[in-house]
Design a protein around this nucleic acid. Structure first.
Length: 692
RNA sequence: GGUGGGGUAGCUCAGUUGGUGAGAGCGGCGGAUUCAUAACCCGCAGGUCGGGGGUUCAAAUCCCCCCCCCACCA
């Protein structure tokens, strides 16, 4: 046991959606770091929670006719299930909607009040009179106010065609995306934190070089803080609006009835609340973890939420007298095959979908082999994923056990570790270096080191060829010595890899009947212990499995994969044709009058007062859009359409409908109701291309 | 538009403070081997280090300009 006491957090997943493989980058990265620290003997606690508050949850609950509590309870269950399946080992998984969090929010708020950091200001905001709530920018759409643009159906903060930024109140003919109503401007009193009072503290903390990656510190200086020593001088930090008027799903501010803490105020406090729950359960003292110089606090987050964790959060902690983060570790996003994850391409893979097709350790290893200390995005190149897992893990590391264990299965390792030419000692001597790489979150470099050790071990067994010696009964002891060496080298590797591959470490422990409990297990060879029967520890993965996962993700709610029990794949009956006989012959000239185009669904929302309609915004690329009402409500959920490519009639005469102007139609097959099947297009097509 | 970060072999990426002939893994090609999940071992990569200019005895590595990609902009 060392002296270090470490509290680790991963960002709180929002309770409005399932965990996907992009989220998993962070949870796997953090879990590896935590397992590493625990293996080193450092007292380490890993807490997380669901982030549950805010408008999105409130609206979702309203749409689904449930309470917010029901929505978040269901999602918490799904999150926990996915995390467990990926071997993410939280010491406590809480919720921001907990009594502990409410209490801590109140205490921190009190400190901020007492420090005279809170001011009140009236602000004007659009209000949806039908839905009865104030609208965040993203819930308003209207015509771009730029007279040279006037693009219709633009979001409330900036125009997707001309790029102009504006306030939602400036939009021409604004509409609420919640109800379709025309919002009105209303004034409400908001509470703000005067962050500028903390400017010098934030300069010092963020620029010290101790707590943030240099890119992050530079970014904060350039974008928010400025440099007091430069010609431009320091920048003024704006006041942070931390209240929202009712109705809002969250905690009501005790000394400001009718106002609620903005979700980003209570979310990071959720780290503390989750710790509190853990403390109450284990008898630990909360202050030992959040008010002690002897505890290091490490946050792991994605680069998108840098600003909340590196300005507001330290400011809140400082003001309320809690420990500041020792380090905020920030990582980049996941791309798949070099591109953003995409639902239409099937690369938006949910954690649960991944688990239906592949083992969690494969992804854990792959991410580890790609993650460095920086905040660049990492790429899940699917071909590389298969190759790397098979070649590194199965062919190289696991293979060591596979090619040596069976010669000694049922027997024991040598009572005295034989002369191996210094291999074991050399690997043991790498322990500190590899530990430092883990410590710095440079997992890819650590994996490289381990791989090199595996190469050396493979060379060793190749040179000594126990399979040849084995044919000579007089060399049995020599064979046993060689295998004792190789199995010990294998065990070393599994110790080094235990943070990444806990399952492999278990299997290694079982094979050699000796648990791996500490990083220093790499330093002492096992002698005289029994060797169990060898069992395969890991299967090679195939392109087919990966393709199946992608296919499964492309249409994630249709087509159960266990329904193909027929002999012939084609059993097409005459019913469809009979129901809708062929039309009379037409000429090519007739056909080309209809301008069919590939289009991308860039917005999709329900039309609540219509039985069948969804309101889609289609992009033909380059800012050209079509507003379309499609009778597919029974067959598709709006969120499942977002981003996918469809075929639309782009030159259809616009038609005024009760709910708005329909400027085209999308092509689909099927009799109707739930049996509607949108036309798609093979990979490679892009919006705007004509169908010939 | 502003701020920050990137553009290095087919692919994914390393390249400390400028200095031995620019590297690794994967893929590919050739050979060897057969203990091992067609695994392992040996050999093979002439890539304008995004483009141009500059500083220097010497630059992927420093400075300037341009192009492209990403994130953030409360």
């Amino acid at each position: 046991m060392t002296d270090r006491r470490i509290l680790v957090t991963a960002a709180l997943p929002y309770a409005n959606g399932q965990i996907h493989i992009g989220h998993m980058v962070e949870y796997i990265q953090t879990d590896i770091w935590v397992r590493f620290q625990k293996l080193r003997g450092n007292r380490t606690v890993f807490v997380c929670a669901d982030d549950t508050h805010g408008t999105a949850i409130m609206i979702r609950a309203r749409d689904e006719g449930r309470t917010e509590e029901e929505v978040i309870a269901e999602m918490a269950q799904a999150h926990v299930r996915d995390f467990e399946a990926f071997d993410i080992e939280f010491d406590n998984y809480g919720s921001t909607n907990s009594p502990e969090n409410r209490e801590l929010c109140g205490a921190i708020w009190k400190s901020i009040r007492e420090a005279s950091l809170v001011i009140e200001k009236d602000i004007e905001q659009l209000f949806d009179p039908e839905a009865g709530l104030f609208l965040a920018d993203r819930f308003v759409r209207g015509t771009c106010p730029n007279p040279e643009c006037n693009a219709p159906n633009q979001p409330g903060d900036n125009c997707s065609r001309c790029g102009k930024t504006y306030s939602p109140a400036e939009l021409i003919d604004p509409k609420s995306t919640l109800s379709g109503a025309t919002p009105e401007v209303r004034t409400a009193r908001h509470l703000f934190i005067e962050l500028k009072q903390l400017h010098s503290f934030l300069d010092e903390w963020s620029q010290s070089g101790m707590h943030l990656q240099s890119e992050v510190a530079n970014n904060l200086r350039g974008q928010f803080l400025g440099d007091p020593n430069s010609a431009e001088g320091a920048k003024e930090l704006r006041d942070w609006d931390i209240s929202r008027p009712a109705p809002y799903f969250g905690f009501e501010i005790p000394d400001s009835p009718g106002n609620y803490w903005y979700v980003w105020f209570d979310a990071p406090i959720g780290y503390m609340a989750s710790t509190k729950q853990w403390c109450d359960r284990t008898g630990e003292k909360f202050d030992d973890w959040w008010k002690s110089d002897n505890t290091e606090i490490h946050h792991f987050i994605g680069k998108d939420i840098t600003y909340f964790h590196t300005l507001f959060w330290p400011g809140m902690l400082k003001t309320a007298g809690f420990s500041l983060p020792e380090k905020v570790h920030i990582h980049g996003f996941l791309k798949v095959d070099g591109e953003k994850m995409s639902k239409s391409q099937g690369t938006f893979v949910m954690a649960s979908t991944y688990l239906k097709h592949l083992e969690p350790d494969c992804l854990r290893y792959f991410y580890a082999s790609k993650l460095g200390p920086g905040l660049g995005d990492i790429d899940l190149n699917l071909e590389e994923f298969v190759n790397r897992v098979n070649s590194h893990l199965v062919g190289n590391i696991v293979n060591l056990a596979s090619r040596s264990a069976k010669f000694v299965s049922g027997g024991t390792l040598c009572e005295k570790y034989p002369d191996d030419g210094g291999l074991f000692a050399a690997a043991a001597a790498k322990a500190d270096q590899i530990a430092e790489l883990y410590e710095q979150c440079d997992f890819s470099a650590a994996m490289l080191e381990v791989l090199q050790l595996a190469d050396e071990a493979n060379r060793f067994i190749n040179d000594r060829a126990p399979w040849t010696l084995r044919k000579d009964p007089e060399k049995a002891e020599e064979v046993r010595q060689i295998c004792s060496i190789v199995l010990n080298l294998f065990r070393q590797l599994t110790v080094f890899l235990k943070p990444v591959l806990p399952t492999l470490a278990e299997q290694s422990s079982a094979l050699l009947n000796s648990p791996i409990t500490n990083w220093n297990d790499v330093k002492t060879p096992l002698v005289g212990t029994p060797v169990s029967d060898f069992k395969h520890m890991m299967q090679r993965i195939t392109n087919e499995q990966v393709e199946a996962m992608i296919d499964d993700s492309r249409v994630d709610d249709a087509a159960e994969d266990d329904s193909d029990d027929s002999d012939s794949p084609w059993k097409d009956g005459p019913e469809a044709l009979a129901a809708e006989p062929l039309s009379e012959e037409c000429t090519i000239d007739d056909f080309v009058k209809v301008d069919l185009r590939v289009a991308r669904v860039i917005a999709a929302k329900d039309v609540p007062e219509a039985n069948k309609l969804l309101n889609l915004t289609l992009s033909l690329g380059g800012g050209e859009t079509r507003n379309v009402f499609a009778g597919i409500k029974a067959a598709y959920k709006p969120e499942d359409l977002l981003g996918r490519l469809v075929i639309c009639v782009a030159n259809l005469k616009p038609r005024q409908m009760k709910f708005g102007l329909s400027e085209g139609m999308i092509c689909a097959a099927g009799p109707g109701k739930a049996d509607v099947f949108l036309l798609g297009v093979d990979d490679g097509a892009v919006p705007g291309q004509r169908i010939h």
